[in-house]
Each structure stands twice: as C-alpha cells, then as structure tokens.
Computed example of a mutant assay.
Amino acid sequence: MSGSTMPAAPPPTSGSPGGVVSVALVDDHPVFRIGLAALLGSLPGVVVVGQAASAAEGRALLTGRDDVDVALVDLDLGDGSGVDVIRDVLRVRPGLRVLVVTMHDDDGAVVASVRAGARGYLLKSAPPDAVERAVRAAAAGEMILSPQVAERAMAYVLGGRTAARVPFPQLTDREREVLDLVAAGLDNTGVARRLGLSTKTVRNVLATVLAKLALRDRAAAIARARAEGLGGDAI
C-alpha cells in the first residue's frame, strides 16, 4: 500500500516476543489463584503461562520453562515456604522477576522475601490496578512494594535497627529471626506463619540454633535469647 505508514510498534516490556509479559502463579489457595489468573489474563499484553499449587510444583514450573517473565509467589505453601522456593528458583533462573503476593505484612516476611531475591511485595488485599502496576513494573526490572509494606520498610530502616549490635553473630540471619520469634513467645506454627516458612523448616532451624549455642532445650534458648535482647515483643 504505497503512501501509507504503519504505526511503530511499542517497545517490548519484557523478554517475551512482541512485548507480552508472561506470568506464572504459585499459590496453594485455588480460589485466589484462579481469580488472580483471570484478572491477569484480562490485561492487555499479559498472558498467564502456568500455575502451581505447591512449593514442589512451583519449583518445577519456574525452573522447567524459560518463557516466564514474572512469577507471583505466595509465602505460605502447603508443602513448604515461598521464600525457599524463590531462593531456589533464582539460583537456576537469576533473571526471573518474582513478586510476593501474601497476607503477611510483618517486617520479617518482607526482609526474608527481599533477601531471597523478590523484586516486589504485594498484599493479597491489593486492588486490581495495583497488581497490574506491580506486574508491569517487575517485568521492566523495577522494585515495587505495596504502600503499606513500603511504609513499614521505611520505618524499619529509619529506626536504625540495621545499625544495632547483632546478638549471636555465629547464627545466620534466618536462625536469628527464628530465635527472636521463639523468644517472643511464638510456637513453631506461629514462627512459620510470620516468616513464610514450613513448620518443619522452623523445627530444623531451631535444632541448629540449639546446637550452635550449646543449649539443651527450647526453654534454655528463650532465656538466653532474652538475656541478649531478643524477643522484645514477648507475649
């Protein structure tokens, strides 16, 4: 057609052909996962290419295909921790952008997710337009936090907690987080929920803490941790 000019195609927003953002979902709550898939599938330039209902399925899905640009991962999965899934998957696919979508807004869950490599953190109560913005931002390589989470994260930093003396330097960050919550009075299930871990993982971490600190039992660990200033929100 001589004399006519075709409009320029928009620049790609991701590594997928034609600028389409390919997303995968890892969540063990079928109603939420199906609803989220329907929402994302209705957005222009976004396609849902896979869903997983457990930690094991999530690992297999996200490491088994290379056409996923953005993965949305819950922290509480029936057979494991979303944080562990994120960490494991990013070792294999470091270029994958991961968004956490969860009900938990506590500092520990946010920090654990970001340390694992998540590029964003959304609460499940986020409105549809916020979910869309987060997916597109993550696909573009940006870091994004929901407003509530961003406010808490800023308070965490400005509070100077990162500059405080670190108790039990022989422990890893995860071990210290678990010990802190145990000292605060939480049982293994409560610690698992706060950190997005499985109860089995919490049990194993606590056993490692007892061995490293040469403590005989949970009660001794609580007493020692509180003496070092942990468990500040003891209940």
Rank of each mutant, 00 (worst) to 15 (best):
D106H: 12
A56Q: 14
Q148K: 14
P169G: 12
A52Q: 06
V70T: 09
D105L: 08
A139P: 07
L72H: 02
V111H: 05
G82T: 01
A137P: 03
S42V: 04
L72V: 15
L96M: 06
D129K: 07
A55D: 07
P167A: 09
E151K: 14
R65D: 08
L39K: 03
A139Q: 02
A138R: 07
A164N: 06
E132T: 10
D129W: 09
V111N: 02
R136Y: 00
A139G: 10
R165I: 10
V114C: 01
A55L: 11
A163K: 07
L61T: 06
D66P: 03
D67H: 02
R91G: 15
V98D: 04
V135D: 04
V110R: 07
G58H: 06
G95Q: 12
D84S: 14
L75V: 05
A150L: 12
R152Y: 04
L171D: 01
V157C: 12
A153K: 11
A163G: 07
L62K: 02
D79P: 13
D84G: 13
G159F: 10
A139V: 05
V131W: 10
S125Y: 00
G64A: 09
S42I: 03
T102S: 12
P44S: 15
V70E: 10
T63G: 10
G64Q: 06
A153L: 13
K124P: 06
A164I: 05
A60F: 03
G95W: 03
V166D: 00
R165T: 13
E151T: 15
D67P: 05
L122S: 04
D107Y: 00
A109Q: 02
V100F: 04
A53T: 10
L96C: 08
R87G: 14
K124G: 04
Y121G: 04
A53L: 03
G160R: 07
G58W: 06
G80M: 08
L39D: 06
A118F: 00
A71N: 10
G41C: 10
G160N: 08
V46C: 09
A155V: 08
L122K: 04
A53K: 13
F168E: 06
D74Q: 03
G58D: 05
V100P: 02
A150H: 10
G80R: 03
V98G: 05
M154N: 01
R165H: 12
G95M: 00
P128A: 11
G64K: 11
L40Q: 02
G58A: 13
A55P: 08
V92T: 15
V114D: 02
G50S: 05
V114H: 00
D69P: 08
V166Q: 14
M143V: 11
Y156H: 15
S54H: 01
S54F: 01
P127M: 11
L145Q: 09
A164Q: 15
H104Q: 14
S42Y: 05
G141H: 11
R133E: 15
L171T: 03
A150P: 05
